[in-house]
């Protein structure tokens, strides 16, 4: 299901939201999570899961084509931990 399909469904479920409103809400939620993570914050949504940031160390790697060694800088990666309730729901 894509974001636009999600917005359509949301309109059907609520019965009151039009597509534009549904889009504004869905974007506000996920842009909000992204901005919080970008600010270094952890995001916890009860019954759903939590988003946090994990640090990856710098490492040496090899270009598989040339065999050349390259230095890869450390970076941050977003990480999602599925909440207990959702974990059980998915595994049913």
């Amino acid at each position: 299901m894509t974001k636009s399909e999600l917005c359509e469904h949301l309109g059907e479920i609520t019965g009151t939201l039009n597509k534009k409103e549904a889009e504004l809400i869905v974007n506000t939620i996920f842009d909000g999570i992204r901005d919080a993570l970008a600010a270094g914050e952890r995001v916890e949504i009860r019954g759903f899961g939590s988003f946090s940031i994990r640090e990856r160390d710098a490492r040496m790697a090899r270009n598989p084509k040339t065999g050349e060694s390259v230095n890869i800088d450390g970076k941050k990666v977003p990480f999602f931990k599925t909440g207990k309730e959702l974990k059980e729901l998915v595994d049913q």
């Binding site: 299901m1 894509t2 974001k3 809400i25 998915v90």
Partner: peptide
């Protein structure tokens, strides 16, 4: 209520084994 409905919709969709693709955010 609406925020709750958004997360519920994502939950029931993935519970059916269907993926959710959110452009600019990521895929579940």
């Amino acid at each position: 209520e609406i925020v709750e409905q958004v997360f519920d919709l994502v939950k029931t969709t993935v519970a059916k084994g269907e993926k959710i693709k959110l452009a600019g955010f990521g895929n579940f």
